[in-house]
C-alpha cells in the first residue's frame, strides 16, 4: 500500500515557550525544532502498516521553508522512503494547508494519509478533517489503533467517554493520537541512508494553489499568570485552609 504522512516543524515540547520581544510571535531563535510529536507517531504507524500489509511506499510531506527539510530527513531516517517539501515562507492557515495537501494527495494517490491529530504549536486540530472533506474521504481522527484489511481501515478512536470504533473505505485520512504507537528512534545507518533518499520540492504555484490568508493572526499575548500559592505544613493546615479560606469543601 502507499502511505502519505504529513510532518510539521514545531518548537520542541521541552523548550520554554517565550514570545518575541515585539510579541509578533513565539521566539524560535536558539530553540530546538522537532517533528511535531503526533506526526512522528503518524510516521511510525505508516511504517508499521507498510510492513503489515506487505510492502509499498511511505512518502513524507512537509510545507515550509528549506528548514523543514530537517524534519523530512528525520522521518526518512526512521524509514520513510521519500520526501516532498512544498516550499512556502510566511503565514499559512489551516485552509491553505488543506488545499496544498489536497493537490499533493491527488498527485500521489496514497491509500491512506496518516497525520498527527494536532500540531503542538497552534493546537488547532483541524487539518486531517479539512483534508478529508476537501477530498470527499472518510476520516478516523484521534486513532488509538488501526487495522487495514479488506479495502477498509478499522480504527479505534479516543473519544470523550470511551473508545469508538469506526470503519472507513480506503482511501481515507487517519489522525494519530498519543497512544497509537511508540515511535522508533532513527538508527545511525538509518540517518546515513536518509541523506541519500529522494526529496522533491514543489511550490504552491506548481500545485496550482493560490494562497490567501483567511485566518489572520492579529497578535499574541502571554496568559494571565496565576498568583503564587502557599505551602502548608500538614494535612490539618490544608483542611483548615480548604474549609475556611478557599471555602472549597
Amino acid at each position: 500500500m502507499k502511505f502519505l504522512v504529513t510532518v510539521k516543524r514545531v518548537t520542541d515540547f521541552e523548550a520554554k515557550v517565550k514570545l518575541k520581544a515585539d510579541k509578533s510571535g513565539v521566539e524560535t531563535s536558539g530553540v530546538n525544532m522537532i517533528v511535531n510529536p503526533f506526526d512522528e507517531i503518524a510516521v511510525e504507524e505508516a511504517l508499521r502498516q507498510k510492513d503489515k500489509t506487505g510492502g509499498g511506499e511511505v512518502v513524507v510531506v512537509a510545507i515550509g521553508t528549506a528548514d523543514s527539510t530537517a524534519q523530512i530527513r528525520s522521518a526518512l531516517a526512521m524509514g520513510a522512503d521519500r520526501g516532498i517539501l512544498v516550499k512556502h515562507d510566511g503565514a499559512l492557515d489551516s485552509n491553505g494547508v488543506a488545499r496544498l495537501l489536497q493537490k499533493v494527495v491527488e498527485k500521489e494517490k496514497p491509500d491512506v494519509v496518516f497525520m498527527g491529530k494536532q500540531a503542538i504549536d497552534d493546537d488547532s486540530a483541524q487539518e486531517g478533517q479539512l483534508l478529508a472533506e476537501v477530498l470527499g474521504w472518510g476520516q478516523a481522527t484521534f486513532a488509538n489503533s488501526v487495522t487495514l484489511e479488506g479495502g477498509k481501515a478499522t480504527v479505534i478512536r479516543e473519544a470523550d467517554g470511551g473508545l469508538e470504533t469506526v470503519a472507513c473505505e480506503l482511501p481515507c485520512i487517519i489522525t494519530a493520537d498519543l497512544r497509537l504507537n511508540e515511535p522508533r528512534y532513527a538508527s545511525l545507518p538509518g540517518i546515513m541512508k536518509a541523506k541519500k533518499k529522494p526529496l522533491d520540492e514543489l511550490t504552491p504555484d506548481a500545485l496550482g494553489v493560490k494562497l490567501e490568508s483567511r485566518v489572520v493572526v492579529k497578535g499574541f499575548e502571554e496568559p494571565a499568570q496565576k498568583k503564587a500559592g502557599q505551602k502548608v505544613a500538614d494535612v490539618a493546615a490544608l483542611v483548615d485552609k480548604l474549609k475556611n479560606e478557599a471555602k472549597a469543601i
Partner: peptide
Amino acid sequence: PMWAGNVIGTVELA
C-alpha cells in the same frame, strides 16, 4: 490558547 496555553493568540476570521 496556543502552544499548550503558553500563548494566547488573537485571530480574525476573514
